[in-house]
Design a protein around this nucleic acid. Structure first.
Lengths: 204, 204
DNA sequence: GATAAAAATCGACATGGTGTAGAGTTTGTG
DNA sequence: CACAAACTCTACACCATGTCGATTTTTATC
């Protein structure tokens, strides 16, 4: 209603399709939770979203595209959260904050993150998305290590390579822990934080 | 030929099917290399092994069973190698030896190991196989950590949990490195060894 | 609020891979 | 040689995928 002229720049009403698209993604996420990727069929998703298979193909070209969109939506959320991360200068609190944030992310989006990791090999787009996400984390870890006194550089025992390894450690540890329980996730976080601290030379 | 009586215990001749079965597994491994799991069809495997689909189903009940058998074959090899590992007492050379062995394993069986990891979620049998393998490594790492003076126990910052995290770090790091090149694998090994040493408190 | 274009939906179809069934052939053994 | 077990094949039924063209609903505009 505001802006009497046909102010063309901003779409006033939300397309019906936008709602559908979101509900398809939501359904997909739900199905992923109790059937898993393989068992989940395109028909299942369509039915869950209240439409037929044919209609679904109007929105997405394939099952993979649906999941890719779901991953993209989730990963975008991760990126926002990453950007919002307070840039603490001191390594010790920076590490603590990072791990706290990581627990939150896996608590909220564990399912989709695990799916993204699983499909990284078979669906190139998802692989791209996830590898970019890993890069963000890896870069952040590198910065902390360097600020803590670890020698900068890309040689196997310098900050960059160590950060990559720590990144994979965290990914895999959380991947498994998030399948079990929140408690496991907390413990996993504790262990990873400890190893990260030691690797940064911040022992005691 | 030895044992003139119908010594029933040992089969003298190799069944034709045994050869077939092996060639099916070999073909499967080869196909996995340039087509990947999804793209590889049961027909492909059968043709590659010189038989028809129907004949293949005499040996294996499904595509998953074929791959599971392949993983089992490979993983058995890993176990043998693990058992044969010299039980060094001093932590430092023990770590060095373990990493050297790990590089060898990934150089030789990287493809199947990656496949096993990828399918762990969807194929329960493979998940079982791989998780057991991970346990072996995890236990070995725990032993080294404890001998190096890390406090024993299962709390998040004690030997057992740290070993698990290091195990996942190695798995994931090698998983990615083995997709790239032998050189990357060497570097990855170097980085992992470094972090392992530091975590064990063996810094210089 | 009538209308035409765009957006959305549907049912039917073609394709391709999976797993099963039953009939046929080879191989080993008494 | 005869008989059973091991092995192989062709044909079929099933199910999920993705495409097509016809049809209905929304949306924007006058």
């Amino acid at each position: 209603m505001p802006g009497s002229h046909p102010a063309r720049s901003r779409r006033t009403t939300e397309r019906k399709g936008d709602v559908r698209e979101r509900s398809i993604l939501d359904t997909c996420e739900a199905l992923l939770a109790h059937k898993g990727y393989d068992a989940m069929t395109v028909g299942d998703i369509a039915t869950g979203a209240g439409i037929t298979r044919g209609a679904l193909y109007f929105y997405f070209g394939s099952k993979q595209e649906v999941v890719t969109a779901l991953v993209a939506r989730t990963v975008e959320h991760l990126w926002e959260r990453s950007r919002a991360a307070a840039e603490t200068d001191e390594p010790r609190p920076a590490i603590a904050a990072a791990m706290r944030r990581t627990v939150e992310l896996w608590n909220e989006h564990g399912l989709v993150m695990r799916t993204a990791i699983d499909l990284s090999l078979t669906v190139p787009e998802i692989g791209e998305l996830w590898s970019h996400t890993a890069d963000l984390f890896s870069t952040a870890i590198t910065a902390v290590l360097e600020r803590a006194g670890v020698q900068a550089g890309t040689e196997p025992e310098q900050a960059s390579a160590m950060a990559r390894a720590l990144c994979w450690m965290i990914e895999r540890t959380f991947y498994h822990a998030s399948q079990e329980s929140r408690e496991k996730l907390r413990q996993a976080s504790s262990t990873c934080e400890h190893i990260w601290l030691i690797s940064a030379g911040l022992t005691t």
